[in-house]
């Protein structure tokens, strides 16, 4: 048990943070929703009703989609683009999907390589892109969920203002949808840019996200 906790401490730490933050968001979001309802003469919602409402769903989904997009782009862009001096980047000259030997696939696989890395054809192709495909799928599903929940929440506001509700197509072209989407995207892209560039010159001793403290600024793809 102790060994399990130690071996999975990083995942468990973030799982715990995620659950605490989601619970906190549901409580704060419910209080904020009820304050607005009170001011507008509407009816307040219980916590249980709020966490199953479109208002909560859109707030959660819009953040999820942008996080998964951030990691999807980071995973895919670092295949083809490099940043000299950044531990987040491959060394210049290694751009692309690399050789089978470098990737230890097919006849270059090791005895303990995953089963689908030892074969060729469609299974190898799928497994070789499984991380990007999965992150991309979760991004698309989260973005779809944002559009559906966002439309429901937006249409309730439209009707409360005595305006016509929007169809799904109208909503995905609306200012509300793109404001929610882009305000999350810009912050994610800035965070990635900061990490890629700051890690060239700054260090965090002991972190694999940083170069070793004594590594040269121009050293690329070195993790500490």
């Amino acid at each position: 048990m102790r060994s399990f906790l130690k071996d999975n401490a990083l995942s468990l730490f973030f799982l715990g943070l995620f659950l605490l933050a989601l619970a906190g968001q549901s409580v704060a979001g419910n209080a904020d929703y009820n304050e607005r309802q009170l001011a507008e003469g509407g009816t307040s919602l219980s916590w249980a009703a709020y966490v199953t409402s479109s208002d909560f769903a859109v707030d959660v989904a819009e953040n999820w989609q942008s996080e998964y997009l951030q990691f999807l782009l980071f995973i895919m862009a670092t295949v083809w683009l490099v940043q000299r001096g950044s531990p987040e980047s491959k060394e210049p000259g290694k751009e692309g999907t690399e050789s089978d030997s470098d990737q230890q696939v097919g006849r270059h696989s090791e005895p303990d390589s995953p089963a689908w890395a030892k074969v060729t054809g469609l299974r190898l192709k799928l497994y070789s892109n499984s991380l990007g495909l999965t992150m991309g799928l979760i991004f698309l599903l989260s973005w779809l969920a944002q559009s559906l929940a966002g439309r429901a929440a937006h249409n309730a506001e439209q009707l409360a203002r005595m305006q016509d509700p929007l169809s799904w197509w109208e909503y995905v072209g609306s200012a509300d949808f793109w404001n929610r989407t882009l305000q999350n995207w810009q912050s994610e892209f800035l965070a990635v840019l900061s990490m890629v560039v700051l890690a060239i010159y700054l260090r965090q001793r002991g972190s694999p996200e940083s170069k070793p403290v004594g590594a040269a600024h121009k050293a690329t793809g070195v993790e500490g």
């Binding site: 509407g42 009816t43 409402s53 479109s54 429901a152 929440a153 249409n155 309730a156 439209q158 009707l159 409360a160 016509d164 509700p165």
Partner: peptide, 9 residues
């Protein structure tokens, strides 16, 4: 008739 949340048109 359309219903969204607690509002209807």
């Amino acid at each position: 008739a359309e219903i969204w949340g607690d509002e209807a048109q």
